[in-house]
Design a protein around this nucleic acid. Structure first.
Lengths: 141, 141
DNA sequence: TTGCGTGCAAAGGTTTTGCATGGCA
DNA sequence: TGCCATGCAAAACCTTTGCACGCAA
């Protein structure tokens, strides 16, 4: 039986993440934010709290690229969970966040026809974002 | 105009990867292998060559878990028809090749509705293969 | 009071980079 | 010859861990 202490840091962190629901935040972002606020939170504490919030299903963790850092995102436990997918531009590094029914279809299709249970948290679509695709077109002309 | 030098190290590395097509290998594995052969290849060289092979679409990179190291795997360029997608089981590491019209639909959908040009070579679907999904179900019962 | 949480610093691991040398074309 | 590739070591990077102290319950 593990009790959860409602520390000042935990409250601040959770509140910050809730305020950015729908955005991706890195551990470094979080540390930088609280530092700039004049109420810094230790890096280790941020990671430890994030781990706990993940276990409580209040936060999701996304591994976009190895070598770069992980992204975290608040998930509203009340909201009925829609699958969230990510597109990463291999050119500019931009990360695009998608919630789309068609993509849930993909999930069902893979399950029904290919017996593969897609994990949207791990899966990242790589390609070119709109801007970079346009730039490459222009460059080739 | 970038030319590719066919160095001794590149040949050895490619040959090693081809011999393990269908398996996933880490950079550390590669270094250890060549060291044990008495013809060691520098770590930096391994990473640099892998990057090049990835750009040439001769090798795919897989990120199973953050914190652990990336996996690499040879992909037969002949086997690449129009659109070939890869599914990687995050449990057993199995790699599944998919050719499916529905997945081409996905590509078109992302392009049309999200202005994102999907790169099928880079993109890997992560999730559970049939066997591992069944095992996890049994385990939870 | 109990024991979990915090912060700092140091360690851990993989990957990247600088620079001089080596080798392919 | 010109340029790319290599190797070594050091740096960079994110993340985890050890330990003493602080603080919620």
């Amino acid at each position: 039986m593990k009790s959860v202490y409602n520390t000042h840091q935990r409250q601040e962190l959770l509140s910050y993440l809730q305020g950015r629901a729908g955005e991706h935040v890195t551990a470094a972002d979080i540390c930088a934010y609280f530092k700039s606020c004049g109420k810094p939170i230790g890096t280790a504490t941020v990671y430890r709290q994030l781990d706990k919030l993940i276990e409580e299903h209040l936060v999701n963790k996304y591994i976009i690229d190895e070598g770069s850092c992980a992204c975290f995102e608040y998930v509203d436990p009340e909201a009925h969970h829609t699958s969230c997918f990510h597109c990463k531009c291999t050119c500019c590094g931009r990360l695009i966040h998608l919630e789309c029914d068609e993509l849930e279809m993909l999930q069902k299709h893979l399950s029904a026809h290919h017996h593969f249970q897609l994990d949207p948290y791990r899966t990242v679509f790589y390609g070119l974002c709109e801007d970079c695709a346009l730039q490459q077109e222009e460059a080739s002309n």
